[in-house]
Design a protein around this nucleic acid. Sequence first.
DNA 1: GCCTTTGAAGTTTTT
DNA 2: CTTCAAAGGC
Length: 822
Amino acid sequence: MFSANPNPVSGHVAAPLGSNSPLLHNLNPEQLAAVTLPAEHALILAGAGSGKTRVLTTRIAWLLQTGQVTPGGILAVTFTNKAAKEMMTRLAAMLPVNVRGMWIGTFHGLCNRFLRAHYKLANLPQSFQILDTQDQLSAIKRLMKQFNVDDERFPAKQTQYFIAGCKEDGLRPNMVEARDAETLKKIEIYQLYEEQCQREGVVDFGELMLRSYELLRDNDPIREHYQRRFRHILIDEFQDTNTLQYAWIKMLSGHGPADIESGAALRHAPGSVLAVGDDDQSIYAFRGARVGNMADFVREFNVTRQIKLEQNYRSGSNILDSANALISHNSKRLGKNLRTEQGPGEPVRVVESPRDYDEAQWLVDEVKQLVRDDHERKEIAVLYRSNAQSRVIETALFNAAVPYRVYGGLRFFERAEIKHALAYLRLLENANDDTSFLRVVNFPPRGIGARSIEQLQDAAKAAGCSLHDAVSSLGGKAGTNIGGFVAKLDVMREQTAGQTLREIIELVLDHSGLVEHYKADREGADRLENLAELVNAAESFVSQEGFGRDAVALPVDELGGGALSQSPASQGIDPNLATDDLPPSYIDQDSGETLSPLAAFLTHAALESGDNQAQAGQDAVQLMTVHAAKGLEFDAVFVTGMEEGLFPHENSMSDRTALEEERRLMYVAITRARKRLYLSFSQTRMLHGQTRYHIKSRFFEELPEGALKWITPKQPGFASGMGGGCSGGFARNSGAGSEGYASARGAFNAQTATFASPPVPPQKAAPSHGLKVGMKVFHNKFGEGKVQTLEGAGDDARAQINFPRHGVKWLALSVAKLTVVD
DNA sequence: GCCTTTGAAGTTTTT
DNA sequence: CTTCAAAGGC
């Protein structure tokens, strides 16, 4: 323990120090080596389930405990708030250390903290607000309308993508190459967008990163201060960093352009960078992540120490062999093989179904069996490639009354009613936030229509000011109505001055008319509940973030002594930068001003959109996309929709790079399972309103036969019905079973494997009964129903019919008396 | 100024 | 099929 170490050693210490610490117990040799690396740049290749987070946190704890660094000298970056929180929690459990003194957070969270601390130098108002993706899109739409940009030729979404992409590459409008007229126009819009944001005092996510980067790049004292301060920089999920994030790391660690040109790196010793990542789990290239940063890092930082964490503590060898075999089909890997000491474990179960509906039904039965066998529902995950696939599964689970929880979708701070409330709050802080202004100027409805708003926008454009400031210049009816709205805002601002965050929010909810509006709405109950929850969120923000009396963080130097005494103040750098501890309450480093609790809360709302908390806490089956499952683990995992066109997704099948990312995605899916893994696919599936025929995913061909166990669920007419029909045109199956799959292998060209309709549909061959899928029929006993499936011919013909009152029935058409309804 | 209707599109997502 | 957003009607 920290206090038990009487003589914390200053400076850099060789690895064995502290190796008898209880922190290091139960680490395997690779983990131990990673935790106790000397203060040099290093890369940890951390396989799935290899204890990566444990290594990261133990590393920090060990550095602190052995006195090699004080909390203020640590910079640890993650991608998600969840990961950052987990790191802090675990760290706090290991050491009695002031976690707040460390810079542990997401890239954007830390950039925000940095910009708040130096807002003047960053040319931002102190209470600048953050635009989330929704806000950004509406800001762009508004701008494009104002400048009469053809939204046919330049869809707002695409423009948004362009701007975000430029920022991720660190490019300002004047730095983007205008290759053609289209690009030139986009650059123009980008430029206008920037001016608009600056005028309104708002920044988007990309801007947080880019402006931090530029401030570090252009301001030598600031850069050198932070370079000197951060002795140890640790980055989680390094394979997911984009160009700008990597450039930011380089800047902070003395590898930026200025350091290289001026040789500034020689004047002080920048910190060491520990990058932790897994190239095999890089699944975010589509949003700008550059796996190549890993190789670049090794080269540009002269990394000589690379450690592979290949010991997996999660799964048996059947699962790991499958993962290893699959991923070995990718090129350009850094190379890594997972191993386990758990023995083979259960085989990977493979299941084929005739239709998505049957797949879902089989899944429900299997889940119920698992639950009967004493598995917790929350330890069962159902994964799919795209969100649309959850629907059938949800329906089946719902009908079987199995509790489930779907991840994804709107999160708390993204809900409309919350965004409305936040817009009012933002306008109290910053009346120039036009995005927020437009969101609520007529919500709840107060008789302000498009025409009045257009007038106001024109006036604002002419005067070059915000909508709020343009109101006074407006006459007539529009002026009166909007004037009333602005007056209301001003009154609220006055009334809330000096109030607590809770009081402010309660007053705004009331005076804005939001509560009244939703009370009048028959379906407003949920929304009212969420608004009440907003007050709770603010309360817990205040108590956690410490905006009250106990806000004062422990001075960092009390804890470690050592390294930071050699820091800036004593070396004649700007004395205002001497405070090494940046507490969470965003104290401005130049003036000591603190951000208001409201402004801080709004920032928090933008940077942490909150959980999607539906049915949280209940023991429910977990439904999510494979992307969302990254970093999680479950006892039993179902990967559904293992079909060409779905997984790999059709948009990714023709491009090798994209296909490799799909394969990594599959690798992530497989490695989520602890004990049991199911891979299931369906021959037909409802997609875009059509029944589509799919063949099983090519990824099955890349898995070791020995680790798999092919299971065919019992389905009426499965072997001879749709099953045979689907593949019948290519390779005739003598029956359903593993032989059938093997014989189908190689008969398909992957490019042409997915059909909008079957090559030789069996029902077309002998449609003696005249029924078609989708027809409405009437049955004497079951009433009206809808034909779902047709199978067989002649006397063997069967139909699966969904009767709303009696459920889904299989009927032999030679027996059942059906009449077509129409 | 609000409400209904039409239409087009339809991976993956955190901040 | 379904969902969401923009266009027309009252």
